[in-house]
Structure formats: structure tokens, C-alpha cells
Design a protein around this nucleic acid. Structure first.
Lengths: 152, 152
DNA sequence: ATATCTGCAAAGACTTTGCATGAGA
DNA sequence: TCTCATGCAAAGTCTTTGCAGATAT
């Protein structure tokens, strides 16, 4: 991992690139799943047993402000985190996957197959919104709600 | 309000259309905002002081399963609720509004202006997903993340 | 009559805060 | 050295659960 790259990024925010932060970022890079703070805590704990859950929360908060991670919410009562679009190694950054959530049993299906048309339209919407609301859009999430096969 | 309509709906789910439930639904119909459980509790409390917060939570849970409300999550650490698409009085059902969330200051902008093209495409995607995953889609939410004018 | 619903209190789960210690520049 | 970051413990929120009493059909 290019430590220098991260170090610079953190220093640009007046922050230090410490060991706990390094381990947490490594973890996020390795896993491309939606991780909860506790998932990260448990995983990082294996190689860095001194880590505290508090640090994980504080680091994730910082990383979100820095635009490195995104917080997701599936209505489970806890947040999940993933790297932002464009962050990561090569083509391991599998993003723009969206979600089908069953409103009955809360089952979640990830959905990644976006057509060219869909991607094009989302970009158009983003451009339009950026202009209209003077907002710098860095990511988007789409949630579809309904009933899964079992619950129908 | 057409009580009979709701009564039937509840009975179809083996549930009773009780007073607390009636008040909560009334509240949701009157307000077209994203309400938290506590918002609803405080508001209903004015006309039905015996209401308990627990009942609000339980009712919202039930209404969500019945497909009457949708739970939203803006990463505030609490859920917000709104009536599902198609539920409500006349054109008061303002739905399909989506959200721009500032990842720095957490400011939320509601966004309602969907072009014909956007609506059409979302319908197409829904149809495609319904077929592919055998899912009955009843609603969708889009979240755009980025930096607001101030935080840019 | 009887199964469901309600409200209260308590418990549970996730997240944040305070503070003394420790680590990075 | 001096500021920022960490970990622990405690507190804070939101939400869920248990249970006796109340309510709807």
C-alpha cells in the first residue's frame, strides 16, 4: 500500500496517518463488502489487538468527512461502510451496486448490473443537480423497496 | 378519513384498527414530511395523550410490513417515516423526492424534480429488477452524496 | 369471551463523549 | 516538545422486549 499517498492525504486535513488508521484503511481495501464498525473492529483486532471500538468509529467518521468512505444504512439499526467510488486498488473498486430491500423480512439483495443507459442517465442527473444546488456530488445510492420472492 | 378502508386493510392482515393506530395514520396523512417516531409521538400526544412511544414504534413497524409507510435513513442515527407511494389523499402524496446529503455537515436537500426521462427509466429498471429477482418493487429512494455549497 | 393491543418500565444495541495516557511530527 | 490520537469507561440515543391491564371483535 502506498503509505505516502495516505500520509499526504491525512496531512492535508491536518491529521496524522497513525497505525490504527492504517490498519482500518487496509481492512476496507481488502474487503469490498459493506462492513459495520464492529466488523472492522473484530477484523483489525486480529492483527492489531490494541484497537478500540471508539477509534474505529472516530476513524470512520473522519474518513467519511475526507470522502474516502461512504456510510450506508439498510435500516438495520447500525451503519455500514464502504470505500467511496474511485478509492481502492485497480478494478477492485466495485461500486454503484444498489440494493433491493424486502420490507417484510428485511432481506437485502445487491444489484450491480447497470446498463449503459442507466449509467448515462445517472451521470446526467448528477450534473444537473450539481449545477442546480451547487453541490459537488461524489456518490449515489439507490434503494429499491418491496417484497422478496418468499414474502410476496 | 375513510375508516372502513383502513379497517378492512388491517383486518386483512389479522390486525385491529385501533385508536392509536388511527391517530398515527391520521398524523402521517396530514404531514407529508419525513417524521421520526418521536415526531409522531409528540404530535399524536396532543390529541391522544395516552399514546406511548412504544406503540408508535410498533405501529410503524406494522405499517411498514403492510407497505403503508417507508422507513428512511439519512444517517442521523434514527429512522424517519413517510407514507408509501400511492397512499394518501389526492395529490398530497408527494413522493419520489430524493436526497442530496452533504457528507461533511450532514445537511440534507430534498430533490423532487424528476424529468420524464428519469421517471421512465426508473420504471424500466424496476420492471427489469422485478423480473430478474422475483421481487415486487413498491418504492425506491435515491441518495446523492457529496459536498454542499458551504463545505466545498 | 378471547385474542390482540397498549403503556410502562426495563433492557438492549449502537454510537458518542470525557479524560488521562500514549504516539506522531 | 507539543499537539493530536487512542483506549477505556461511562453516558447518551434510539429502539425493542416483557408483562399486566385494557381494548376490539
Amino acid at each position: 500500500m502506498q503509505c505516502q499517498h495516505w500520509k499526504k492525504k491525512f496531512m492535508g486535513w491536518g491529521c496524522r496517518f497513525t497505525q490504527p488508521r492504517q490498519f482500518i484503511i487496509d481492512m476496507l481495501l481488502k474487503s469490498n463488502k459493506h462492513l459495520t464498525a464492529e466488523d472492522i473492529y473484530i477484523e483489525v483486532h486480529k492483527s492489531y489487538p490494541n484497537i478500540g471500538l471508539t477509534t474505529v468509529y472516530r476513524t470512520l467518521e473522519l474518513l467519511e468527512k475526507m470522502g474516502i468512505v461512504h456510510r450506508l444504512d439498510f435500516g438495520e439499526g447500525k451503519s455500514r461502510y464502504e470505500l467511496s467510488d474511485g478509492i481502492g486498488i485497480e478494478n477492485k473498486t466495485v461500486h454503484h451496486h444498489h440494493h433491493l430491500i424486502c420490507t417484510n423480512c428485511r432481506k437485502i439483495i445487491n444489484y450491480t448490473d447497470f446498463s449503459e443507459q442507466e449509467i448515462k442517465l445517472m451521470k446526467e442527473i448528477e450534473a444537473e443537480l450539481s449545477k442546480k444546488y451547487n453541490f459537488k456530488i461524489t456518490a449515489h445510492q439507490i434503494y429499491f423497496y418491496g417484497l422478496c420472492a418468499k414474502c410476496k
